[in-house]
């Protein structure tokens, strides 16, 4: 039963992944990626990691993919996206890589999967705050660095001192490449 479900969700994940890769429109590709993450969360659950399955759905689908979709919509990426001219060569190369990996995986022979114990969360949390305490703290540093980096990169480049910019009741906030305030003053 467990094995059959594993194959079923695996086929679903592969189908969704193929749709991510071969779609030429950004929004459907993102939605298929969400589907792929859900299938993978089901695989984690079947392997006996309910906590990681929940994290997968919450963070990947709930945060990362929403960010992706937000950017796709913000940049108005409708229409077919261009693909590489040498796509056939690239695909061939990737296929060769995959066949090598598959052969290696098959040749290595499988180890038997241990039966899943009770919920994975207590063991995970205990390891997180003892053995992996230093990586955990480094991770929080990484997140802060990423937030500051994203803010710095995402800031609009034409920052002028606040006194010249803010005029009560007239200024609007534009997300991307808004017209400079001076033009608005002339137009209105």
């Amino acid at each position: 039963m467990r094995e059959a479900l594993f194959y079923l969700f695996g086929a679903g994940a592969l189908f969704a992944g193929a749709n991510v890769v071969f779609r030429r429109h950004a929004v459907p590709a993102a939605i298929w990626l969400v589907a792929c993450f859900f299938f993978l969360a089901a695989e984690y659950l079947l392997l006996g990691f309910p906590f990681l399955a929940a994290i997968q759905v919450l963070i990947y689908v709930g945060a990362i993919m929403v960010l992706f979709l937000f950017v796709i919509m913000l940049l108005d990426l409708h229409g077919a996206q261009p693909v590489q001219a040498q796509a056939r060569f690239a695909a061939g190369l990737a296929l060769a890589l995959v066949i090598t990996a598959l052969a290696a995986a098959a040749a290595a022979g499988g180890e038997a999967l241990a039966e899943a114990q009770a919920p994975d969360m207590p063991a995970l949390v205990e390891a997180l705050f003892t053995t992996f305490l230093v990586p955990f703290e480094v991770t929080s540093l990484l997140l802060v660095a990423a937030i500051v980096g994203a803010l710095t990169l995402g800031r609009s480049p034409d920052i002028t001192p606040p006194k010249q910019r803010i005029r009560p009741g007239r200024d609007t906030i534009r997300m991307v490449g808004g017209a400079p305030p001076r033009d608005e003053a002339q137009a209105g």
């Binding site: 590489q84 796509a87 695909a91 038997a112 999967l113």
Partner: peptide
């Protein structure tokens, strides 16, 4: 159940990712 199907699925997904990485512009 053994690890082989898990690794096979991971390899195939990784290959799909590589194809997408090389293919898209």
């Amino acid at each position: 159940m053994s690890t082989t199907p898990v690794y096979l699925l991971a390899a195939l997904l990784f290959g799909l990712g590589v194809i997408g990485f090389l293919r898209q512009r």
